[in-house]
Design a protein around this nucleic acid. Structure first.
Lengths: 130, 130
DNA sequence: TCAACACTTTAGAATCATTCTAAACTGATA
DNA sequence: TATCAGTTTAGAATGATTCTAAAGTGTTGA
């Protein structure tokens, strides 16, 4: 609890009740993939009712501070990943199935980066099913 | 024109006025990336007013028939690619900048595919900027 | 050639994730 | 503990996409 407060403060985030609850859930040591909706549902199960607006705000605040990765998996919702290490994913849209690929994947044969641009990140999505 | 009709027929698509116009634009020999909105705008410039609903319907019909690839680049709109070969992309969300990587990219070090699943496609997105 | 019908198109409504607004609330600080 | 900037929130707004159901149009068989 106090460590969560410290954790939030050290990321320039005021430790409000809601952020403490959300951070407590997200950063409990196990990697998680969440959407605003799924997070809301999980917290509700634990009797923590937090408005969707706040959930969106908080996910973005955490993302902006590098505490979450944002995943581009499908066009209909945004996923956030508590594993902020360099890694990739298996994804099944049909089954909402998503798992990390933590093994060292190498992408070889990339052409030159376009002029005056720099690479922000390389995202490898292995789509399953069809 | 007649070749476009044949092309549509050979894909089990009734060659309607609208589909002929859309296919004529999309499959003119140069690779294109479009969204429903951008396609609508381009066709309007050419004095072809086609309802958005039809544009969505047609993009999906073409996609279902393998004439287009669907790209998962950002969560706020769907992109379709007329290049249906195996390839990847540089993408800048900020600048709506999108170019093909046709070079042979190799992804090495993939772990075993999850049980009872098979790989549909591997998508590599090189995100630029930040 | 044309009637008949299944397939298409379309305007407008509906949906749904997400963002915005602006008012109430609450950590932090002096 | 008063003050105020930073937060939360309900509800409205937005925007891409899908749905609905009515009107339109290729296609086919005679």
């Amino acid at each position: 609890m106090n460590d969560i407060k410290q954790f939030l403060r050290s990321n320039a985030l005021r430790p409000t009740k809601q952020r403490i609850v959300i951070a407590g859930y997200l950063f409990d040591g196990t990697d998680k993939h969440v959407t605003a909706e799924s997070l809301s549902t999980e917290l509700a199960k634990r009797k923590h009712i937090i408005s969707l607006a706040t959930i969106y705000n908080t996910l973005h605040d955490f993302y902006e501070n590098g505490l979450l990765k944002k995943l581009t998996l499908s066009a209909d919702r945004v996923y956030f990943d508590t594993n902020t290490n360099d890694h990739h994913h298996f994804y099944s849209e049909k089954e909402q199935f998503l798992i990390d690929i933590n093994k060292n994947i190498k992408v070889n044969g990339l052409p030159k980066t376009p002029k005056n641009k720099k690479i922000n990140k390389i995202e490898v999505i292995v789509h399953l099913d069809k």
